[in-house]
Nucleic acid binder design. Structure first.
Lengths: 197, 197
DNA sequence: GTTACTACCTGAGAT
DNA sequence: AATCTCAGGTAGTAA
């Protein structure tokens, strides 16, 4: 299970959805099921600021979740998908999900580069998408198969990458201890919502 | 007249416009008038997939032909120009015509690379633009001043360059003989129209 | 001036 | 052989 373990079987952790209110014992307790992985390319983590979602994955896992009619273009227009951070901690990521007609490909655009930066995602790493009922999760692991170190309270180091191999991660400090309780207000999520037009 | 002969004075040939219906004896019988030539640069025929149109030529010959208001940017938005193949045979080329503000230059983009490929256009060759009334024509000639061999029925060789020096050209076979009659259906043009959003 | 974001486009490779 | 996919590009715009 090295290929999917980073995202699966962690439903016992306190994954707080932020804006989404769920009845206890409902979807938030469902076991995560793996949707798909992608080994990211240099372009996926580079200046293009987009993740190409392989067509069959997009159409199987994301399209049916979107509101709108049966036509794909109607569903996708302006779609924003919300993914909870697979490591727990209550953080969520909002990505615009689009279809580029010119290349006939599905992409995550706005918001994606923030995830790349925060996780120091590099070409060859794998992003993993899971869901538990209606909740979506995103996680990643290094090319060697290593997963980011589990979140834990650390001394503040508020800038840059939240995963430094063998070292505490910067942003995580905002999510644990006293800050962990404040995470119910989801400052990071609020910022992203404000940016998401 | 070696510099312009490839494009001029061939209005007696059966240039079929494809989708455009014209009254016989109208524009299609007008004598072609030369607009301008350009000796293409390595960039014009390379991976940039664009032809830089010298500003004064673009503003004199193409801008006034476009619909839209008095502002150049309004006229150019989404402009696609259609050029009939100066060699005859009913083929037409569709090029997106754009203004690139960053370099303050006019360019042909989408569709241009297909012409480069088909004619085996190389740096130092000359492209020549003519018109007969509202109809536009494009042709080219080699740097030495040679023009491509006149179109004639040949044995099939359906791939690659339509002009091989001293040899029959590949795609031309589709346009002459029996296929010449089928050219009224304009499969090549249809394909381009379908691709041109 | 820089960075992101939208919406284009194309060649190469897979099928 | 032709089609489809997608990695890697582009320009223009907004912030």
């Amino acid at each position: 299970m090295a290929l999917t373990g980073a995202c699966q079987s962690r439903s016992s952790e306190p994954e707080q959805g932020g804006g989404v209110k769920l009845a206890r014992g409902g979807e938030d307790r469902m076991r995560r099921e793996h949707m798909f992985d992608k080994v990211v390319t240099p372009s996926d983590v580079g200046k293009l600021n987009r993740l190409v979602v392989p067509k069959h994955f997009a159409e199987r896992h994301f399209l049916p979740r979107l509101p709108g009619g049966g036509v794909a273009s109607a569903r996708i227009a302006g779609a924003v998908l919300r993914f909870e951070d697979g490591r727990g901690g209550g953080r969520a990521w909002m990505f615009r999900f689009s279809y580029w007609g010119s290349s006939q490909s599905y992409v995550m655009t706005k918001g994606w580069s923030a995830f790349v930066r925060d996780r120091c995602l590099a070409a060859g790493d794998t992003v993993s998408f899971c869901r538990a009922g209606a909740r979506l999760f995103i996680d990643c692991r290094r090319r060697g198969g290593r997963v980011p170190a589990p979140a834990m309270p650390v001394v503040p180091a508020p800038t840059s990458c939240s995963e430094v191999v063998g070292a505490p991660r910067g942003r995580c400090v905002r999510l644990f201890g006293v800050d962990l309780q404040l995470a119910g207000a989801e400052p990071t999520l609020d910022l992203q919502l404000a940016l998401m037009r």
